[in-house]
Write a protein that binds this DNA or RNA. Structure first.
Length: 418
RNA sequence: GUGGGUGUAGCUCAGUUGGUUAGAGCGCCGGAUUGUGGAUCCGGAGGUCGCGGGUUCGAAACCCGUCACUCACCCCA
């Protein structure tokens, strides 16, 4: 038996209504905030991701699905959505169009990780990117959209955490100070954090090991190295969040895993979600467009993990939609008439179905019941000779005879008026 | 990449200190007098017990290996 490869999932018909509900809700809220959908390719040239996400990040170093095209050029399945969106923004010279430009996207992403709860190799994200506005209200707008969207989905135990990462220069100034401190307490840190002192010192502050937390309790804070401009921006962001009533927690240790973030970084976590409890995250990335060859365009955005939302979504929110009319045709003549009737119903917009295997009326009715049909049309040879069919209301069990030629119109009105 | 847990019917799971044709519930198909669903009753189909080796007169069970799934580390949405 050929099986799906590790870390990818089939979405079976029973669960697809939940996913459609999530995606529709996300698009609706994005539209409400003025974001419009962009669809960019699933794969891109490898250097796009290396240059935007950061060559030394885990994603680029060991998680990308990279392969050679037939001409030998290196391609990569997208591990996130921002890089491709920024590439499209630059390539189509959208910076020349009126700003701001606000995009949203939804689709599969690929990272070669060990699967676990809430983490797959092919997973799905919904995200937004707002280009062209450095005003802190753009940060607030994006966080507000994220918060309202997740709240509307009635996910339990949501928390919004935010931090100020400052400008690149601020971090460049802070990093040596932090490294010096960490080297002093190195003996108290876990093995991972010792390695991180050189590779990614900011991450040490985000370590969950209790001893590391203790050891870094008095570490110099990034906040103290921030430039006045960075402080002002962040103060406006927090004031803006308060003004629109979005609850948040300051988390000075919050660090994002992608190199391109600056100033505002945020993350929404969800309780009861297992170890992978970040349901959505994002931040500002003012330097990225320029870094990828565009003009200096500020930007801010977020991404949410759809699998993680689906894990938390209450069972009851989405129901499948199915054909409401069942055609029960039995008998040699009636089977032929029934098939053309079925097609005519569908052609005129009546959602209808029929089980081609069923030979007895009993089998037909069982199937109609299973499909939760509202009406069943009885079509036997008796009916054919009379030119009428019996229409049974499956809930009230009331039956009436209707001329076969009148059935599509009759069922249309019955479905509308109940 | 590193650990832990679990692999028996389509699904959820029983299966005693190793013992003969491997079970249940749900689901599926059919029947309960000829053309009326859901309930009930009856019947049926469906399994190389993840795979390979070993121990044994005998293995779903014990041992070794392997693969898959899963949770966690790591990382991230």
């Amino acid at each position: 038996m050929i099986k799906a490869i590790k870390g990818v999932k089939d979405l079976l018909p029973e669960e697809s209504p939940r996913w459609r509900f999530i995606e529709d809700t996300a698009r609706r809220w994005a539209l409400c905030y003025g974001f419009q959908e962009i669809r960019v390719p699933i794969f891109e040239t490898t250097t796009l991701f290396a240059r935007s996400i950061g060559a030394t990040t885990d994603i680029v170093e060991k998680e990308m699905y990279t392969f050679a095209d037939r001409d030998g050029s290196s391609l990569t399945l997208r591990p996130e959505g921002t890089a491709g969106t920024v590439r499209a923004f630059i390539e189509h010279n959208r910076a020349a169009d009126p700003r701001p430009q606000k995009y949203c996207y939804v689709g599969p992403m690929f990272r070669h990780e060990r699967p676990q709860a809430g983490r797959l190799r092919q997973f799905h994200q919904f995200g937004v990117e707002s280009f062209g506005v450095s005003d802190p209200r753009a940060d607030v707008e994006v966080m507000s959209l994220l918060w309202r969207l997740l709240s509307d989905l009635t996910l339990p135990g949501l928390t919004l955490e935010i931090n100020n990462l400052g400008y690149t220069e601020d971090r460049a100034q802070y990093t040596p100070i932090l490294v010096a401190f960490l080297k002093n307490v190195e003996s108290r840190l876990c093995g991972n954090c010792r390695r991180r002192i050189e590779a990614n010192p900011l991450r040490v502050l985000d370590c969950k090991v209790p001893d590391c937390r203790l050891a870094t309790e008095d570490a110099p804070r990034l906040t103290d190295s921030l430039s006045p401009a960075a402080r002002d921006h962040f103060e406006s962001v927090t004031a803006g969040l308060q003004s629109v009533g979005i609850p948040f927690h300051l988390n000075p240790r919050l660090v994002r895993g992608l190199d391109y973030y600056c100033l505002t970084a945020f993350e929404v976590t969800c309780s009861h979600l297992g170890a992978q409890n970040a349901v959505g995250a994002g931040g500002r990335y003012d330097g990225l467009v320029e870094q990828l060859g565009g003009s200096a365009v500020p930007a801010v955005g977020f991404a949410v993990g759809l699998e993680r939302i689906a894990l938390m979504l209450p069972e009851t929110v989405a129901l499948p939609t199915r054909p409401r009319v069942y055609v029960a045709a039995f008998g040699t003549q009636a089977v032929k008439v029934g098939f053309t009737l079925l097609d005519e119903l569908r052609r005129t917009g009546v959602p209808a179905d029929m089980d081609f295997r069923a030979a007895s009326l009993k089998a037909h009715l069982r199937q109609a019941d299973r499909l939760e049909a509202l009406y069943t049309i009885f079509l036997g040879d008796d009916e054919i000779t009379k030119g009428v069919a019996t229409v049974r209301n499956m809930q009230t069990k009331a039956q009436e005879d209707i001329a076969i030629s009148q059935l599509p119109a009759a069922l249309q009105t019955r479905l509308i008026h109940g």
